[in-house]
Simulated assay, not measured.
Amino acid sequence: MRKIFFPFLCFGALLSCSDGDLEIETIDFDSVTLDYCSDPTTDAKNILFKINESESLILELQSGVLNNGVAGETVTTESTVPGQSQITYRVFSDDVDSDYFCSDIPPAQPTVIDEVEAEDGSVIIETIVDPDDASSFLHTISLSGISFVTDNGERITNIAISEFGEVTTNVPD
């Protein structure tokens, strides 16, 4: 009886394996450099992104959230996700570079395999006068409480993206 049952057990184990669906285990962009296509401004939406080989994390900051700051002070601004700003995680079919985001017409390859938008959290921006250039403001962008939920309802909990990066804007004349 055991000799007959064992092959059925092995066959059942093979059938129960993953069908190849993409499973996102970790989102880690802390060591990846922040990039953008056009210099960030204080009066428009800003698209900032990080690329980690075949993955990207895209931050669309609401218009005006990068404020002009106050000389000698640290100004902290908060933007809610997804209400005011949006964070999107994408997985591509192959490695991607900034040309994908900065081209007027995105290239056909690589293709987007999976895309997940953040459902909760906030973007916190601390603004100071740039210590290396008094004609610029330095904006340090951090993420707090970011929550991604996949299409099948799975919450991505292993997220290493607390500090998103720094950008500068010009001090107005």
Rank of each mutant, 00 (worst) to 15 (best):
S147T: 15
R155M: 06
S16N: 14
D151C: 00
S38P: 00
V32E: 07
D21C: 09
R90M: 05
N152D: 15
S93L: 03
Q84V: 07
D95S: 15
M1F: 10
I27E: 03
S98T: 13
I105H: 08
D43T: 12
I24S: 04
E163H: 05
P7Q: 09
V32K: 06
F8C: 14
S162H: 11
S54F: 05
D99C: 02
Q62S: 11
I141D: 00
G145R: 10
G12Q: 07
T127W: 04
L22F: 11
I159P: 04
L57C: 03
P172H: 06
F164P: 00
E163W: 00
D19N: 15
L15S: 11
I141T: 05
Q86N: 12
S63F: 03
I128H: 06
I24Y: 07
I159T: 10
H139V: 07
T76Y: 01
T77H: 00
T80H: 03
E163S: 12
K45S: 15
D19F: 11
I124F: 05
S144F: 07
F148Q: 04
A71T: 10
I105A: 12
D132K: 09
T74D: 08
A118P: 02
S38T: 14
D28N: 15
L14G: 12
E73Y: 09
L66V: 03
E78S: 08
I161K: 01
I113M: 14
G145D: 15
E78P: 00
L59G: 05
P107I: 07
I125S: 02
P40F: 03
A134W: 02
I4T: 12
I124R: 10
L59W: 05
T111N: 10
R155I: 07
F49Y: 07
G64I: 00
E73A: 13
A160S: 10
E55A: 07
D132T: 09
A160P: 01
L143F: 09
S136D: 11
T169R: 01
N67F: 00
E23G: 08
I51E: 07
T42R: 07
P131R: 05
D39N: 12
A160F: 07
T33G: 05
F92H: 05
D94M: 02
F29Y: 09
S54D: 15
S18H: 10
P107C: 09
D19H: 15
L66T: 03
V167F: 00
R2W: 09
K3N: 14
T77Y: 00
P106N: 12
K3V: 10
V81I: 14
P106M: 08
I161D: 04
L143D: 04
E163K: 11
F6K: 06
V65P: 01
F6P: 00
D19C: 13
I4S: 06
I51Q: 06
N152K: 08
F164R: 03
